[in-house]
Amino acid sequence: MAVSTNPADHAPAAGTRPGGHKDGFRATSRKDHWATEPLAVLIGLSLFIIYATWAAFQGNHYYVSPYLSPFYSPLLWVNPDAAGAAPVAHAWFGSWPQWWPAFIPISPSILILPFPGAFRFTCYYYRKAYYRSFAGMPPGCAVGPIPQHPYKGETKFLLFQNLHRYAMYIALIFVVVLWTDAVRAFFKDGRFGIGVGTVVLIINAALLSGYTFGCHSLRHLVGGRLDCFSCSSSCEARHSLWSKITGFNERHMQYAWMSLFWVAFTDFYVRMVSLGYIPDFNTWGR
């Protein structure tokens, strides 16, 4: 192998630092396909946001006995006039209120979706994902970020990310609600049975549980904030819980994606069955 020993051959090109590094957005010496991952994340999250927003504003075909779409659960109020709406008895507070402003679409989903949305938006995994893919802060490791002067990180405008735990508290309530929906889906008109939709709802509740129970804030609050795990029986119990949550936490990214996909698929499945486009194979008979 011939190696030039002439220093002029190794001088940095114009616009580069002495070590040959470049500055600027997307500047890198990496030769691998580093853009693939942020691009895939960008596409995946964008598709979900578009579908979830569309589904949330539909306000119809979110229910087909005994299945309720997770985008519409918990059901606070029901508009009984909407096609594919749940019976009013399913709603926590009954029929849609008369005082509802006319300029806001009537959809039970828009009342509740901001909460799981906030949980995912402030999630430590999703922060990594969208800071890289949407904000270019940076788009990849050892890849130039979008310039900021001065860089502030999460010290100013993004300070609200520190309240992730409050979104988590609400997400825990949603997990209970979704498990309740999944269990209730085994009973149609008082008769026990099982269908494809039941399985879909159970998987949805399980994946969302796996995602929620792997939350970094939950891990901190149940035991991570302790320095001594063996100092009392309650500390021992919290260590045991912390260890279990750590197991979920190590797969937080996987659960984040699987639950994201499945919750959208669950809504899609219920919607398709409610619209009559696909049959639901089950033990009740149609």
């Binding site: 430590y124 990180g153 735990r165 609050l221």
Partner: peptide
Amino acid sequence: FCNITKCCTEVCPEGIHITDNAIIPLKE
């Protein structure tokens, strides 16, 4: 200033979970 992009964890030759086990717990 850390915005959790986890590049430190990706390059650690010792496989230390820098972000998940050190930085995020400190942020909490």
